[in-house]
Design a binder for these strands. Structure first.
Ligand SMILES: [Mn+2]
Ligand SMILES: [Mn+2]
Ligand SMILES: [Zn+2]
Ligand SMILES: [Zn+2]
Lengths: 146, 146
DNA sequence: AACTTATTGAAAATGAATTTCAATTTCCTT
DNA sequence: AAGGAAATTGAAATTCATTTTCAATAAGTT
């Protein structure tokens, strides 16, 4: 997993070079912190993590770097019911959906090919071609429903 | 359908009386305009419709009345990818999901019991009990995909 | 009519996210 | 290594939808 992180950082560097963006100390720190963190993090949460050791890195730069990570394909933006933009590291190109607990806030991921196929089928009945979809379940997780 | 509207307005009145809210000219106008309008409207859009004939009704009151309509069960709040809060009249307690066209912006509604059942099945595998879900498809409608 | 309570609209406030801008840094070219 | 164009940075200002505040007004109860 440490290898995976440096591999991703290498990918980011390639992306930046290709786009004419510059490598900076800030981007490196923010990206490292992001890539090793738990999933579905907000800009503010990441800013706090980064600030712990680097008091000179600005809020704005965290926002900008998270955008950059999205553009490079290393992060995905997600917005759940609280309307905060969250980011999660992308592991290859696997797609997944989410179960969000209304009590503890935990987010569980799942993937179901049957579901994806059914979605395509429904869409095609309307002559609709799906580019993307959002599928979030809100309710109570095993621990919270008691 | 005109009967349906006045029926809903009656329901709203009952709700307001029960909650100790007052009937006002503004609420009546806003609710009427909302209930007869096309679906998935934003506060601003409704404000414009209302303002056309009633230049004295404030923006804030439209926001507040839309909230009231939600609380009374006559409207549902929906947020799609543009992050604007939209409201749609609720017809009984039927549930539906949405196909949103990325080109023309049209929103098509659908309902699929098979999909709902599959969702329950997936959730139960995680010991998760669903309270609500959000399922939006983004892509191109029949007309726009050419 | 008198009175209590809710409602209204304008303006101010909120809060996440974006933009602006002058100072600094990166990195390409000599 | 030095110069210089172009990108980046952080703080502060701005945006934009939505909410809150508050004094004036309207509703509904007695
Ligand atoms: Mn996820
Ligand atoms: Mn709908
Ligand atoms: Zn939980
Ligand atoms: Zn379309």
């Amino acid at each position: 997993m440490i290898k995976e992180i440096s591999e991703k950082k290498a990918r980011l560097k390639t992306f930046m070079k290709q786009k004419g963006f510059k490598s900076t100390r800030q981007r490196d720190i923010i990206a490292s912190e992001f890539l090793k963190c738990e999933e579905h993090i907000t800009a503010e949460e990441l800013y706090k993590k980064v600030s712990r050791r680097n008091k000179d890195i600005g809020y704005t730069t965290v926002y900008r770097t998270l955008k950059l990570l999205s553009e490079s394909g290393l992060a995905t933006e997600r917005i759940f019911a609280d309307q905060l933009t969250r980011y999660e590291p992308v592991s290859d190109d696997e797609h997944h959906d989410h179960l969000i607990c209304l009590k503890c806030g935990s987010i569980t991921e799942f993937e179901d090919p049957k579901l994806e196929r059914l979605q395509e089928k429904i869409a095609s009945e309307f002559g609709f071609s799906i580019v993307d979809h959002k599928m979030d379940f809100y309710g109570y997780c095993r621990d919270c429903k008691k």
